[in-house]
Nucleic acid binder design. Structure first.
Lengths: 188, 188
DNA sequence: ACTTGCATGTAAGTCGTTACATGATTGT
DNA sequence: ACAATCATGTAACGACTTACATGCAAGT
């Protein structure tokens, strides 16, 4: 899966590992993120498998390794994309904690859920900000500017959909935990 | 986290690794599951750390290793439980696939989402069945029977809540993907 | 002068899975 | 007889993360 996202990001233009990391943070960040310490070795492996091609350049005194996707890489990515979509495994520490909540005092239970709620609200605000930024840069703007912006962030309608999904997902979480907090006292 | 769930399940009585695996499948299964191949080594490590105590018994010709939690294990579990709840990382392959949907034909997009929807419906039905089973065994039943049942499955109100959460979570997914499918043709 | 960001890389460790291997008991 | 379930274990591998290590460039 690590490989896939690297290949995917190379589809619309060559990039360095560092660039991809930055792109991931502002786009797939909330549902898929990976560290630089795993991106670089991953690229080395992909190069050995002839999935990507590397060009070393010197830009402003800095050495950069720019990767582009090969035909083989494209085919590999495509076959992944065409596969059936697996139901996500939710490995959720929060749910696990609540599963064992019988062993926690009611006061601490409420405190932890409240603080959790605050952080999900923060997450929602972050996503809302990204969304507003997109809208601002794609609505009522000269076409050229919009295209530049979309190219820079590799934006497309489906990626926007994913942002919307994130927003609704965290809203769902927020709603559920809020009502859970309310019910808390009545739960035994 | 692997360790934590093992310790947590030992809180209400000693168990074998195999038993815990079975319990996991019917209770935490949809949000946290782990393989036998990692449970056994995990127990060995926990024993070395004096978090659990092992008693080897022979029951019906079979050798079993029954584990019980120690004081040290209890403390370790408790300190985990009392910690702040982290926002879950959703590492979702489904979302990643949709993120790259621009590279898939509209026909395949629809097909994949439809099949995905069918499987989430299956998941919902599974959870509904478990839920009905609980209700059947805890409502209008002699008290003794209910207690036995709850003890067997380590049932408590919070664990029931987690089942309800799962149901609502998958319903949310279902709803979102359904509307996504409908919108599909209008998305570029 | 100093901090932040750009840019890459390695080593150690964690955490987990799948596949393989064994063997007994229980139900059909 | 045969399949399913109970019961344990190991080996190989995979996929990461964190911490460490280096160094230049740009802005304040």
């Amino acid at each position: 899966m690590q490989d896939i996202i690297l290949l995917g990001f190379l589809l619309n233009g060559e990039k360095t590992g560092y660039q991809i990391k930055k792109l991931m943070e502002i786009s797939t960040g909330y549902f898929f993120n990976t560290s630089l310490g795993s991106i670089y070795p991953a690229f080395n492996k992909l190069e050995k498998k002839n999935m990507v091609r590397m060009t070393q350049i010197i830009s402003g005194g800095r050495t950069k390794k720019i990767y582009s996707i090969t035909q083989k890489g494209r085919e590999y990515f495509q076959s992944w994309l065409e596969e059936d979509i697996n139901i996500p495994k939710i490995r959720d520490e929060a749910l696990l904690k609540i599963f064992f909540f019988q062993n926690l005092s009611n006061d601490l239970r409420k405190e932890r859920i409240s603080s959790f709620l605050n952080r999900t609200k923060g997450r929602i605000k972050e996503l809302e900000m990204t969304f507003r930024l997109i809208k601002k840069n794609t609505q009522n703007q000269p076409k050229k500017h919009v295209e530049e912006y979309q190219k820079k962030y590799n934006l497309d309608p489906f990626r926007e959909e994913m942002l919307k999904f994130g927003l609704e997902y965290y809203s769902f979480l927020n709603k559920w935990y809020k009502s859970f907090l309310k019910r808390m006292d009545t739960i035994r």
